[in-house]
Design a protein around this nucleic acid. Structure first.
Length: 540
RNA sequence: GGCCGAGUACCCAAGUGGACCAAGGGAACGGAUUGCAAAUCCGUCAUUCGCGGGUUCGAAUCCCGCCUCGGCCUCCA
C-alpha cells in the first residue's frame, strides 16, 4: 500500500515510485499488434493492462491520494496526469522464421495474403469485407481495421483517442523515413555497420548497457548462441548478438529505396548519406520501428513509460534501448518498463492446435458482453499469468451485473452524501500499489455489499472507479450485432403477453411452458411487481 | 543448461513477519421471498496458505532444499 504510485520497473527489477520527467505529464509508448492476423485475447490482455495503467494515471483519484502532493495535484487540474499514449501498428512484412534473423522463412505478410486469398476463394470472408489479397498493405489494413473494432469494443482508450489524433496509432510503414534517419544516425555515430550484402547491423559491443533490461550479458549471449542462427549469417556479424536494422532485399514483398525516401521528402542531405553508406532498397529490421516512432511521435528522446508483452523484454526492448540511447546519447530511452505476463487458457499456454487463440469477436459470438470480457482480462494482476476460462468469464458477468444493479439503484436516492467517504482512498491505495487490481475489486465489492441503499453520490463514486476500470463504460451496443438466429424483441414481447394472460388465469402449466420456450432461446425472464422483464443470456 | 516469475478453499483471487484461527467474486448448500422459478436478501463454506526442513516469542509472509507450472535465451502480447 502506498500513498504514491509505485510500479514494478523491469529495468531495475524493483517497485519504484513513479515520478515523471515533466510534472503532471506522462509519455507512454506501448508495443502494439502485428496485423498479419486477428488480434487474440492474449494480445488484448497486455494492451488492457497498459490501458488500465494509463487510465489510472489519468484518474483524479491517482493524484489525490498523497497528502504531500495535494497542492501539486491541484496544478494538474482535476488531478491525474496528462498522458500522451502511443501504440504502434506493425504492418511491415517480417519473417516467420527470423532464425536466419535476416530473411529465411516465409514472410508473415505473405502467409497472411495466402490465408486471405483462400478465405476469399472459399467464400468464408465475413460479409461486406472486400480485401485484395494481392496487396500487402490492403491485407494489413484489413487486420488493422479488425483490431481497431475489437479494441473499441473493449474501450481501449488509445484507440478511441486515435479517432481524434490518428498519430497516436501509427503504422510502421508510415514511418520508414524516421527509421532510416535513425539508422543513419547510428551508422554515423559508429553504433552500426553495413555488411557486404547490404545488411545494416547494430553493433552491440558499442553499447555497454546491452543486456541490462533482460539480465543478459554479451558473454552469455555469445555462449548461448546454440546454433539457432545460421553460421553464414553469423560470419558477417561482429558479434552474435548484433541485430539487423536494415536489410537490402530487392525481392521483398514490402520494400523501400532509402535514397528515394529522403529525396521525396526533400531531404537531400540524408539521401546523400544513404549513397555514402550504400543503403539500398529493402526493408527495416523489426526493432527499429519502435525507437523511431516513439521519438518522432512522443517528441522526446526520453520517455516515461514503455509497455509490451513479457516476451518483448528480450530481444525486442533490449534492442530498442540500445538503438535509442545510442542515437540520443541519453541515460534512458524509457524510464519505466512495464511488462504484463502471458495469458493462459484453461491452465495451458494458448495454442493454435487446441483452438485456444480466442479473439474478441469469438467471445462476442458466444454471447459474452464486452464489459465481461474486459473485466475478465483485467481482473488478474498484470504480473501474474492470468488463466482465462469460460467459467471466469461467467464470474465476471455476474460481477458486472451486480455493479450495474448498484449503479441503477443509486439513481433513485438523490443525496450528495456518500455512504463511505473513505472508499475512494482505499481504492486508490490499492491501485497505487503496483496496480493491485484484485485488491481494488475486493474494495469495490465489499463497499457494494455494505451499501444496500446507495445514494446518487455513491453512483458518482462508482463512475469514478469505472473511469479507471473502463468496464461499465464498455457499451454493449459497441458489440457487433448479436447472432441473428435469436427471436426478435417483438416476438419476445408477444410471448410475454401470452404468459401474463396465462398467469392471470392461473394457468401455470402454460405460463411455465412459455418460460421454458423463451429459456430455450436464451431469453431469461424476471418477474417483478410491475410485470415481467426479459434479457438475453450468453449462450454457453 | 542459464536467467526470470508463480504455486492460497471446488474455481478465480487479495494478503509479503503480530489487528489474518486469511479480503473479494463465482459455484455449492440451508433459509426468506415466489404459484413454481429467476433475480434479490440472510446464513454456511480454508484452524490453513505446493512439499520438507530452519530462523523467530510469533511465518502464508524471512532462509535453505525439493516438486510443479509459466516466460525469455534472436517468431510470439
Amino acid at each position: 500500500m502506498s500513498d504514491q504510485l509505485t510500479l514494478h520497473n523491469t529495468l531495475t527489477g524493483r517497485e519504484e515510485i513513479f515520478v515523471p520527467l515533466r510534472a503532471g505529464e506522462c509519455s507512454f509508448y506501448t508495443c502494439g499488434p502485428t496485423v498479419y492476423d486477428f488480434t487474440h485475447i492474449g494480445n488484448f490482455r497486455s494492451f488492457l493492462a497498459a490501458d488500465l495503467l494509463r487510465r489510472w494515471l489519468e484518474s483524479p483519484l491517482c493524484a489525490r491520494t498523497a497528502p504531500d502532493r495535494k497542492p501539486e495535484a491541484h496544478a494538474f487540474g482535476q488531478g491525474g496526469y496528462r498522458v500522451r499514449h502511443v501504440m504502434n501498428i506493425t504492418d511491415v512484412g517480417h519473417m516467420t522464421d527470423d532464425s536466419a534473423a535476416d530473411g529465411a522463412g516465409e514472410d508473415k505478410m505473405e502467409a497472411a495474403r495466402k490465408r486471405l486469398a483462400e478465405a476469399k476463394k472459399a467464400g468464408t470472408l465475413p460479409p461486406g469485407v472486400d480485401v485484395d489479397p494481392s496487396d500487402p498493405l490492403g491485407v494489413a489494413d484489413y487486420y488493422r481495421a479488425a483490431f481497431v473494432e475489437d479494441a473499441r469494443t473493449l474501450s481501449l482508450k488509445v484507440v478511441l483517442d486515435a479517432d481524434r489524433d490518428p498519430a497516436l496509432l501509427p503504422r510502421a510503414t508510415d514511418h520508414i523515413r524516421h527509421m532510416l534517419a535513425l539508422i543513419l544516425e547510428l551508422i554515423e555515430r559508429h553504433h552500426a555497420y553495413v555488411d557486404p550484402a547490404g545488411v545494416v547491423y547494430f553493433d552491440t559491443q558499442s553499447f555497454p548497457d546491452y543486456g541490462r533490461l533482460s539480465g543478459n550479458t554479451l558473454e552469455k549471449i555469445r555462449s548461448g548462441a546454440g546454433g539457432r542462427v545460421a553460421a553464414t549469417v553469423q560470419a558477417s556479424k561482429k558479434h552474435p548478438a548484433d541485430f539487423m536494422l536494415w536489410k537490402h532485399d530487392p525481392t521483398h514483398l514490402m520494400r523501400w529505396d532509402p535514397m528515394r525516401v529522403f529525396a521525396d521528402a526533400g531531404d537531400a542531405e540524408r539521401a546523400e548519406l544513404c549513397r555514402k553508406h550504400a543503403l539500398k532498397e529493402g526493408y527495416p529490421g523489426w526493432h527499429i520501428e519502435c525507437s523511431a516512432m516513439a521519438r518522432a511521435i512522443l517528441d522526446h528522446d526520453e520517455i516515461d513509460l514503455h509497455s509490451g508483452g513479457e516476451d518483448n523484454i528480450f530481444p525486442h526492448h533490449e534492442c530498442e534501448i540500445a538503438q535509442s540511447r545510442c542515437a540520443t546519447g541519453k541515460q534512458h530511452f524509457a524510464r519505466y518498463w512495464f511488462h504484463p505476463r502471458f495469458l493462459m487458457v484453461n491452465a495451458e499456454k494458448m495454442s493454435k492446435s487446441k483452438g485456444t487463440f480466442f479473439t474478441v469477436r469469438d467471445l462476442l459470438g458466444k454471447g459474452f458482453s464486452p464489459a465481461a470480457i474486459r473485466l475478465e482480462l483485467i481482473k488478474t494482476h498484470y504480473r501474474s499469468n492470468a488463466n482465462f476460462t469460460e467459467q471466469g468469464l461467467k464470474d465476471s458477468m455476474r460481477m458486472v451485473a451486480r455493479w450495474r444493479a448498484f449503479r441503477a439503484k443509486a439513481e433513485s436516492i438523490a443525496s450528495n452524501d456518500a455512504s463511505d467517504p473513505q472508499v475512494e482512498e482505499r481504492f486508490a491505495r490499492a491501485l497505487n500499489d503496483d496496480l493491485n487490481i484484485s485488491g481494488a475489486l475486493g474494495i469495490i465489492n465489499a463497499w457494494i455489499n455494505d451499501t444496500p441503499s446507495p445514494t446518487r453520490a455513491d453512483g458518482a463514486i462508482l463512475d469514478r472507479f469505472d473511469g479507471v476500470l473502463g468496464v461499465l463504460a464498455c457499451a454493449d451496443e459497441g458489440a457487433p450485432a448479436q447472432s441473428s438466429d435469436g427471436p426478435s424483441d417483438a416476438e419476445i414481447d408477444a410471448l410475454l403477453r401470452q404468459r401474463a394472460e396465462a398467469r392471470k388465469a392461473k394457468n401455470f402449466a402454460e405460463s411455465d411452458r412459455i418460460r421454458d420456450q423463451l429459456a430455450a432461446m436464451n431469453i431469461v425472464i424476471t418477474d417483478g411487481p410491475n410485470g415481467a422483464t426479459w434479457s438475453r443470456k450468453a449462450a454457453l
